[in-house]
Design a protein around this nucleic acid. Sequence first.
DNA 1: GGGTACAATGAGAATGATTATCGTTATTTT
DNA 2: AAAATAACGATAATCATTCTCATTGTACCC
Lengths: 142, 142
Amino acid sequence: MTVMLDPSSHSPLPTTRLTTKQKAVLTQLEQLQEAVSAQRLYTELRQQGESLGLATVYRSLDLLKLRGLVQSRTTADGEALYSPIQQDQHYLTCLQCGNSVPLGFCPLQKMENQLRRSQAFTIYYHTLEFFGVCEPCTHQAP
Amino acid sequence: MTVMLDPSSHSPLPTTRLTTKQKAVLTQLEQLQEAVSAQRLYTELRQQGESLGLATVYRSLDLLKLRGLVQSRTTADGEALYSPIQQDQHYLTCLQCGNSVPLGFCPLQKMENQLRRSQAFTIYYHTLEFFGVCEPCTHQAP
DNA sequence: GGGTACAATGAGAATGATTATCGTTATTTT
DNA sequence: AAAATAACGATAATCATTCTCATTGTACCC
Ligand SMILES: [Mn+2]
Ligand SMILES: [Mn+2]
Ligand SMILES: [Zn+2]
Ligand SMILES: [Zn+2]
C-alpha cells in the first residue's frame, strides 16, 4: 500500500454491502497471484460453477475500484489487468516484444505523505511502469 | 527527462533515417502541447494537407517509440495518448468521472540512477498515474 | 403474505481503437 | 534500369469494452 488513504475515510459510492456476484469477483481476484483480465476472470468463474455474465464482471470491477478494493493497469496491447489493491507491484515492459517483468520494489513508497497533501483529490492507488527494450531484444535484428 | 539513457547509446532498431511521413508525425506531435491520440493526430495531419493513412500513423508512432523519441500512456477508456518523450508529465485520474488533471512534478526524478543500475533492461521512459476520486465527484450521489 | 420501487443481472448487439491484409508505390541495391 | 526491399494506403478484421433492454432479485411498506 502506498499512496492511499484509509478506505473507510472516503466513500464516494455505495455504502451498501457487496452483492454475491461482486464478492465472487473479488474473491477470485484475491485467489490469483497475478493481475488478470476481466475476460479471464469471467472464464475462470464460469468454469468453477459461478453463474454470471461478462457485463457483470466489468460492472463489478468498476464498483470495486470505486471502493478502493481493486486496481487496474493497462497492458501494451490495450487490455486492462485487475488486481487486489494491496499489491504494490510495477513492471518493466519491452516496447519491442511486449514482455514485461516485475520490478522488485516501489520507488514511491517514501513519498506517500507528500503526495497526499499536494492535491484536493482522494488517491486510491497508482500505476507506474517503465518502458524500454529488454536484453534479448537488444541483440536482435529489427 | 527522468529514467532514460542517452537515446543515441542504444539502437535496437533502424539505424536509418526517418521517412517523410514519420517525420510529419513526430513534428505534429512536437507542435501540440498536450498528449494526443493516434486518431486525432491522423485527422489533424490530413486537415493540414498531409497525405497519409491511419495505419501509417500507428506504424510511425510504434517506430518512434522504439527509437526513444515518443512515449504513450493509456487513458481510462483504453485510448493511447502519445507525446514527445521529453515531457515528464503525470496525471491524477478520477475513477468516477474519468477526468484527469496533470501533476505538477515527477516524484521519480531523484531515483534515475538507482533504477538504471538495477535492471538489465534499457529504460526509455516511464508512465506514472494516480487514481482516485476528484473533489466534485466526492460530493456527488453515485 | 402481497405489492411496488428500484437495483442488479445476463444475453447479445454495438462501439471503437488498434491490427492485419494485400495490392500499390517509393526507395535502395546491384 | 531492373530487381529487391521497405513504406504506404484503403479497407476489412479483431477484440476488449460498453450499451440496451428484458428479466430477476431485493428492500421496504401495507
Ligand atoms: Mn507503487
Ligand atoms: Mn516522471
Ligand atoms: Zn523484448
Ligand atoms: Zn471525478
